[in-house]
Each structure stands twice: as C-alpha cells, then as structure tokens.
Simulated scan of single mutants.
Amino acid sequence: MNSEFTIAVHSLVFLASRPDRMATSEMIAHNVNTHPSRVRKVMSCLRKQGYISTKEGIGGGYLFDGDPEQVTLAAIYRATSIGSIKPGWCSGNDEESCMVACNMADVMDRIFCEAEQQLLTYLQQMTIAGVLEQVRAAQRGKG
C-alpha cells in the first residue's frame, strides 16, 4: 500500500471535520505532517474523482464535496492505490527449466490480487465519517 492512500484518508477526514470551511494545501500538509506538494498531488486525484472541490486564489483551498457517510475507504483506495499491494519486483524466470522459477510470478500475482480483493472488502465497510468518529472517540478518551 502506498502513502497516497493514507494522505487521502487523513485529508478527507480533516476536511470532513471542518464542514463548510476551506483548507489550503499548507493547512492540510501541516495536519498530515507532509509536504504541501504531496498533498496537492493527492488532492488533484481526489478532485478528479469528485470527492473534493477547490477554489483558487485568496481565501481558496479544498472543501469536502460529498457525504462522508457515503465515501468508503475502498473507494479512496481504488482512486489512489489500486495495484500497489503487489511489489514492483517479482521472483522467477519464465526461461528457466525449474518448475518453481517458471511459475512463481503467476502464483504470486494471484496471491496479491486475492489479498487486494480481501483488503477492498474490508475497506468497503469503513467510511470517512466512521474514521472521523473514531478520531473523535480517541480524542474523548484522552480527555
């Protein structure tokens, strides 16, 4: 899984916690603890998918554009990270005569594909609103 997913979820939860208030990439980056350019890259992807709206210029920024109860983490994963669970390198070599080397890449592809499907099933049960509620509950527990 890549960091874009985490940045996306964190950013959307942050925006959902401030309904009707814009947040700049600098504000979000400070909250996420990353560079504003990384936030802008992720937010661009989320804007294209319709999860946020933007306003440019003075007083501009990002605004959650939707219902946090309806946006699942699976949808955010699909938008930012699909296929990232599979490592870039795969063992095996099709040209070798070894049964293991000749078949390992295909077997590992299936394993990672199935793992990603299980992850999506799990993430489908969670929404941005649910994550925000968990954050609020954690905060209440500290108080």
Rank of each mutant, 00 (worst) to 15 (best):
C90N: 13
T54N: 02
L132A: 07
I28S: 06
S84G: 09
S81V: 01
D65Q: 09
N93F: 10
M108D: 14
R47G: 03
G88Y: 09
V107L: 13
R110E: 15
R110Y: 02
E133D: 14
I111F: 15
A129K: 12
L120C: 15
S17Y: 04
T72H: 04
A74T: 01
V135S: 03
G61V: 01
T127S: 14
M43I: 09
T24N: 08
E4H: 11
G57W: 02
N33Q: 10
C90I: 12
D109W: 01
I82R: 15
G130E: 08
A29D: 06
L119C: 05
D109K: 02
V100S: 04
G50L: 05
Y62H: 14
G88A: 08
A137C: 03
E96Y: 13
A115N: 12
I85H: 05
I128Q: 04
N93V: 01
T24D: 08
I52T: 15
L123H: 06
D106W: 07
L132V: 00
S44C: 05
C98P: 00
I111W: 15
H35E: 10
G130K: 00
R136N: 14
C45R: 06
P19N: 11
V100D: 07
I58P: 00
R136P: 00
G50T: 10
A138Y: 12
M99E: 12
G141Q: 03
G60S: 09
E114K: 14
Q139I: 06
V13I: 04
T121I: 07
E56R: 14
C98F: 04
S84C: 10
M27T: 09
